[in-house]
């Protein structure tokens, strides 16, 4: 099989990172950071998000790249544009993000996790008991 260590880590639903790291398209990272801010209530619905220029200066990236990230979120209906004012968080954005991330989790993260378990010979029962033990420790 072709083992993709993908650039598009959004598909894998990896742990969110608060700073920009290498090896991952910068505009996807911008997307993720804004999404995470929305999920955490740092950005509220119907609130203005930082402009591309503000994001560019904050993360020292090219404004065109920041704009690409913002546009991706607009396409997904998470942000919307108010002419002459800026970008705003759409109503229901947090739910939308959560739903999509769950989907991603199920489709890719869980899949990879189960693949790894399978290759190590971990049975379903063992897995379940591992999860219960983890819950007890929490």
């Amino acid at each position: 099989m072709v083992n993709y260590v993908s650039n598009e880590q959004r598909k894998t639903g990896e742990e969110m990172q608060e700073f920009l790291t290498e090896q991952k398209s910068i505009y996807l990272q911008i997307c993720e950071m804004i999404e995470t801010d929305i999920l955490r209530g740092i950005l509220l619905e119907e609130e203005r998000v930082p402009s591309t220029n503000e994001l560019a200066r904050l993360y020292t990236i090219n404004p065109a790249t920041a704009a690409k990230g913002i546009n991706l979120l607009v396409d997904q209906g998470i942000l919307y544009k108010k002419r002459g004012i800026g970008m705003f968080v759409a109503t229901g954005a947090a739910d939308k993000i959560r739903t999509r991330r769950k989907e991603v989790f199920q489709k890719t993260k869980l899949f990879q996790f189960l693949q790894e378990a399978k290759s190590l010979g971990i049975t379903k029962e063992e897995l379940v008991s591992m999860i219960s033990r983890w819950e007890e420790q929490q």
Binding site: M1, V2, N3, Y4, V5, S6, Q23, K24
Partner: peptide
């Protein structure tokens, strides 16, 4: 795209 069906690792680069 990189064709499927080979035992290879594909990594993004900087």
């Amino acid at each position: 795209s990189i064709p499927e069906g080979y035992e290879i690792t594909v990594q993004p680069v900087n």
